[in-house]
Write a protein that binds this DNA or RNA. Structure first.
Lengths: 126, 126
DNA sequence: CGGCATCCCCTCGGATACTG
DNA sequence: CAGTATCCGAGGGGATGCCG
C-alpha cells in the first residue's frame, strides 16, 4: 500500500509545483530574497502574468512570503519560507537524479524513435 | 549558478514525468511487473487512452519496458527498467517530503483563503 | 485483452494593454 | 515598479467507438 501512497502524495506535490514555472521560481529565490523585477529578469522566458500567478500560488501554499514596502516607487520582495527551503532541498535530490540520468533518457528516446522509423520506412507496403 | 541548473534540469524531468499520470504508473510498477489491465485497475481514475499514452512515453524514455506475449488472448506486461527503478527511488525523497509537509501546505492555504475572504467581505464597498 | 482513432472540452499560459 | 484585466491559441486529457 506504500505504492498507492507514493503515487497519490506525489500527485499532490506535482499539482502544486509541477507546473511550468514554480520550481524555477523556488530555485532562484533559494539564492536570496529578490524583487519582482529581479525574478522576471533571472527566469528566462517567463511572462509578467505567469510570474505573478506563480508567486501568488506559492504564497498561498506557504512556500514563498511576499513583503510590500509602502514606498514610491513600489517595492515588493519575495523570499522562501522555511517550508519553501525544505522543498528546495527535496527538489535537489530530484535534480541530482536528472544530472545523472537525463543523458540516458535522451539516448533511450533516440533509440526508440529510430526503431519507429524502421517500422515506418521499412515495410513500406503502401 | 547552481540555482539555474536546478531550475533548468528540474524542468526537464518534470517535462517527462510531471504530467498527471506518469509518477503513479511508475509507483505501481515499482511493486512488480504488471499487465495493462492490472495497471488500469490499480490506478484510480485513469482512462484507457491515458494509460496507453503514458506507458508509451515512459517506454520511449527507457523508464518502462513493454513485453508482448504473442498468445491469444493477447498478454502484455510492463515493468520498470533499472533506470526506472532509480527514478522511483529519487521520487521517494519527494514523497517523504510530501508526507511531512502537505499538512502545512493545506493549513497555509486555508489561512490564505480566509484572509482573502476578509478582504472581500470586509470593506464591501461595492 | 490491449490497444488506436476521433471528437471535444477545458485549462494553461503567452501577448497585449491599462493602472496605482 | 509591480501588478491587474482581457483575449486567444495550443494541447492535455476524458468519453466513446472500432480493431486484431
Amino acid at each position: 500500500m506504500e505504492h498507492t501512497a507514493l503515487g497519490c502524495r506525489a500527485r499532490e506535490i506535482l499539482d502544486r509545483i509541477g507546473d511550468k514555472w514554480s520550481l524555477q521560481v523556488i530555485a532562484v529565490l533559494g539564492e536570496r530574497t529578490k524583487r519582482f523585477t529581479e525574478l522576471k529578469r533571472e527566469i528566462d522566458g517567463i511572462s509578467q502574468r505567469m510570474l505573478t500567478v506563480t508567486l501568488r500560488g506559492l504564497e498561498r501554499d506557504g512556500i514563498v512570503v511576499r513583503t510590500v514596502y509602502p514606498v514610491v516607487p513600489p517595492r515588493v520582495e519575495y523570499s522562501l519560507t522555511p517550508l519553501g527551503a525544505t522543498l528546495m532541498d527535496a527538489a535537489g535530490t530530484f535534480v541530482a537524479w536528472a544530472e545523472d540520468h537525463l543523458a540516458q533518457i535522451d539516448a533511450a528516446r533516440a533509440d526508440y524513435d529510430a526503431r519507429q522509423m524502421d517500422v515506418q520506412g521499412d515495410g513500406a507496403h503502401r
